[in-house]
């Protein structure tokens, strides 16, 4: 059975049709990258997967059952910013999830249970390369380190789905390459299903096993928000080639100009 089924999903805010007619399924273990121009609804789609927003039309199913209407531990998330809690140390951030689960009314673990959680957190932090910074606060970390921390914090819950919304958008290119390697390694090791939004078409092509392009099929210059974006390309990535990549880039650029015109 498919892990995620998206059936005729559409989303609109008032007159602004953001997404329409989304139809696809995703199997467990896929790494889906999602690209599209700014404002075409990628974040909106991730938020529907999270349960933070509900579709205006259609339904999203997980294991054949409707997705719960609020976020839960089976779906982890890393945002571009603000994913980690500023008042907890690196170790505290990663231990938080398990502590909530087993720590009773005060959500704090003590003694042997704490030691167990701590060991688990430390090994995960080791895997993301943060074992030297266990007792630092997020404000003392670089942007790349904060994102590594956010990934570890999400993965300790062993989520079935990991949602990444432009997680490396604010990072330097060099650090980005390291992060790509890290994410691919963790994805292979854990078998988690990844949905990752990116602005960078190249990143989308190189990282995923499947690339989805969000774009408007119908563009109306008079009313740019009358039609929503849908998925215009859904590629299994081994078949992708350079010419296609160029073609997609130019189509997305057209929508981008349309939306930029609408703002002006």
């Amino acid at each position: 059975m498919k892990l995620i089924e998206v059936n005729q999903v559409g989303k609109q805010y008032g007159d602004n049709v953001v997404l329409e007619k989304l139809n696809f399924t995703v199997s467990a273990g896929e790494f889906c990258t999602m690209v599209g121009t700014s404002g075409c609804g990628k974040t909106t789609f991730l938020r529907m997967l999270l349960g933070e927003e509900q579709p205006s039309h259609g339904a999203i199913l997980m294991d054949g059952k409707p997705l719960p209407a609020e976020p839960g531990p089976d779906r982890g998330v890393v945002f571009q910013r603000y994913s980690v809690l500023p008042h907890l140390t690196v170790l505290g951030n990663v231990m938080l999830g398990p502590e909530l689960k087993t720590g009773g009314i005060f959500a704090r673990a003590f003694g042997a249970r704490r030691a167990l959680i701590r060991r688990e957190a430390e090994s995960l932090l080791d895997a993301v390369g943060l074992s030297h910074a266990l007792n630092r606060y997020p404000a003392e970390l670089s942007g790349g380190m904060q994102q590594r921390l956010a990934i570890a914090q999400a993965l300790i819950m062993k989520p079935r789905i990991l949602l990444l919304d432009e997680p490396f958008g604010a990072l330097d290119p060099g650090i980005r390459a390291d992060m790509h390697e890290l994410v691919l390694r963790l994805w292979r090791e854990t078998g988690v299903t990844v949905f990752m939004v990116t602005h960078d078409l190249k990143e989308g092509f190189s990282l995923g096993t499947r690339l989805m392009v969000f774009d408007k099929i119908r563009r109306d210059a008079q009313a740019p928000n009358a039609y929503g974006a849908t998925i215009t390309y859904d590629l299994q990535l081994k078949h992708a080639d350079k010419a296609l990549q160029k073609n997609i880039a130019s189509e997305v650029a057209q929508t981008s100009q349309l939306l930029a015109g609408a703002i002006l």
Partner: peptide, 21 residues
């Protein structure tokens, strides 16, 4: 940031956990 509220829910936290932690 609303991200923190969402984050806590994805860590399995409930309303009380959010207020407390």
């Amino acid at each position: 940031p609303r991200e923190q509220f969402i984050k806590l829910q994805t860590l399995g936290g409930n309303s009380w956990h959010l207020m407390l932690r």
